[in-house]
């Protein structure tokens, strides 16, 4: 039995991952803002899978407190998933620094500060798995969400560097790049059905990546090829496109 910490535990993808972990007999801790909203989910997990589940208050925007936050945990988790994310409003971010900073903070900077703290604890023990949910949006800037994309690009680069640094230490780093997932984040948006995964499917892809020790996974796998095409469109064409 492992102990799994999910940062952004109220995210649809994070919660789906908690279910899969608990189903496989692991204890889960859901860390989120206003964790009282997760009380029923914790009862659900405990009832369904007969494992211990708990919540904890966590704010991705409190980078200054992240080191202490992690040190306060009763035990060092075996698996840490960073699932918090903030899509933001691109219009707003073009004129409002607070929105832009929030996008950078929740998707990139907050992930870095809390995951560095997690890695320090894991290094001490000599084992562990870190999973960061980045996004295909980080592979190429598009006018519809380029601040978010830039933050996810930073997260992807951070995770790849971290993996490089920790290679051979027993700590494994996984980068997950979802395409479209039908979660609260996409609420009200029209996405192509064939390329839109359920949060359960995305979570299952992540769990398989843990079991198989993968480094970078797309979810669903189709996106690896979609993004290969998108990355290779010459910039002089791409700049005129609306995708």
């Amino acid at each position: 039995m492992a102990h799994v910490l999910i940062l952004g535990g109220r995210s649809d993808i994070g919660l789906a991952f908690a279910h899969i972990c608990a189903h496989n007999g692991h204890e889960v801790c859901l860390a989120a803002r206003r964790p009282e909203r997760l009380a029923d989910d914790v009862r659900d997990i405990a009832t369904r899978y007969q494992v211990h589940a708990e919540t904890r208050e966590f704010d991705a925007e409190d980078s200054g407190g992240h080191a202490d936050w992690f040190n306060q945990l009763d035990q060092t988790p075996d698996i840490v998933l960073y699932a918090a994310g903030y899509l933001g409003d691109v219009e707003q971010a073009t004129k409002d620094n607070a929105e832009l900073e929030r996008i950078m903070q929740v998707n990139a900077r907050g992930a870095m500060t809390i995951l560095e703290a997690a890695v320090r604890a894991m290094e001490h023990r000599g084992s562990g798995t870190i999973i960061g949910i980045s996004s295909v949006a980080g592979e190429r800037g598009r006018k519809s969400n380029y601040h978010y994309g830039a933050a996810k690009a930073a997260l992807t680069t951070f995770l790849s560097g971290l993996r490089n640094r920790l290679s051979g230490t027993g700590i494994h780093v996984i980068t997950v790049k979802p395409g479209f997932v039908a979660t609260r984040m996409l609420q009200g948006m029209q996405t192509p059905a064939a390329l839109t995964a359920t949060p359960e499917r995305c979570a299952a892809d992540m769990y398989r990546a843990v079991q198989r020790g993968r480094d970078v996974v797309y979810s669903t796998w189709h996106w690896r090829y979609v993004m290969a095409v998108i990355r290779n469109i010459p910039e002089r064409l791409f700049k005129k496109m609306s995708i």
Partner: peptide
């Protein structure tokens, strides 16, 4: 669709 509690003695399930 959350299962809120189950009493393994009485068989009473509380669920959404």
């Amino acid at each position: 669709r959350r299962m809120l509690s189950f009493d393994g003695t009485s068989g009473l399930l509380h669920a959404q």
